[in-house]
């Protein structure tokens, strides 16, 4: 589904290479985790895939079901099925959460040439999905992420993911700032979306999120490259021994 080949990326404003040849394939129905030390390029990878400004791809490619996503605007990637759950969701005062989500859902549908969702249908769907994530009516009405706690913001990201039903979900340190209960709730939300047609790329520092979202494949990223790929046991190895051994091995 998602195929990243030899991806080289540098910051636009300074001549600094961040990704130095990433190769990664996420198959439909699979959960891939990326772990790695700070500054290894994990978040950059998520931003480059979702189309944030400020990065320049100097070499390589990224395709979703064969379509070159690097050529697309962020909203086109979203309509094609890419979703990024942000590490730091942005607050948007004055814009109700529901209004925002309905605009997003219908923009994507319109872009794909599908019929827009009516207000009634939307309300029905969102209420059911919000309930599963313990998001109350008040949170749906409030301005996007304004005054939300860390946990509420992350749950709101998962709610957006559930409503938009993307093909390829990228979760950027979704566990950061969450207590154990909140992490469980978020993980349950993600697990509920696991599906044969959907791929996941879960970026995290810690093994603990992967206790709840069981990955099929674990990658270790360091200095802009994937240095090791393995099964879930690789995450446990990191948890027990840290990154030092793996990094030494890679050199």
């Amino acid at each position: 589904m998602l195929e990243i080949k030899n991806l080289h990326v540098q910051l636009e404003e300074e001549d600094k290479q961040i990704l130095k040849g990433v190769n990664l394939t996420v198959e439909a129905g699979k959960v891939h985790a990326i772990m790695g030390p700070n500054g290894s390029g994990k978040s950059t990878l998520s931003y480059v895939l979702s189309g944030k400004d400020g990065y320049e791809v100097t070499e390589g490619s990224a395709t979703l079901d064969g379509a070159d996503i690097l050529e697309m605007e962020p909203e086109e990637r979203a309509a094609a099925g890419v979703f990024l759950a942000f590490q730091y969701p942005v607050e948007i005062p004055g814009v109700g959460n529901m209004t925002f989500l309905r605009t997003a859902v219908n923009s994507q549908r319109k872009a794909r040439g599908e019929e827009e969702m009516s207000a009634t249908e939307f309300l029905k769907v969102i209420r059911a999905k919000a309930k599963d994530l313990k998001i109350d009516a008040d949170m749906l009405k409030r301005p996007v992420n304004v005054g939300f706690s860390g946990g509420e913001k992350k749950r709101n990201e998962i709610l957006q993911m559930a409503m938009l039903e993307p093909k390829m979900c990228i979760l950027d340190e979704t566990d950061s700032g969450l207590d154990v209960d909140a992490m469980k709730l978020v993980a349950d939300g993600v697990n509920a979306l696991r599906d044969e047609g959907r791929g996941f790329l879960v970026i995290t520092h810690y093994q603990r999120l992967l206790d709840h979202i069981k990955p099929d494949v674990v990658h270790i990223m360091a200095d802009g490259r994937i240095i090791k790929t393995g099964g879930p046991e690789l995450a446990l190895e990191v948890e027990n021994n840290g990154y030092a051994d793996l990094l030494a091995e890679a050199v």
């Binding site: 979702s50 189309g51 944030k52 400004d53 605007e73 962020p74 909203e75 990637r77 979203a78 309509a79 979703f83 990024l84 942000f86 969701p89 942005v90 948007i92 925002f100 605009t103 997003a104 859902v105 923009s107 994507q108 872009a111 957006q160 938009l164």
Partner: peptide
């Protein structure tokens, strides 16, 4: 904020 909204599929 602009990137956040666009990443959800909302045109610029």
């Amino acid at each position: 904020g602009l990137f956040y909204l666009r990443s959800r599929g909302i045109d610029e």
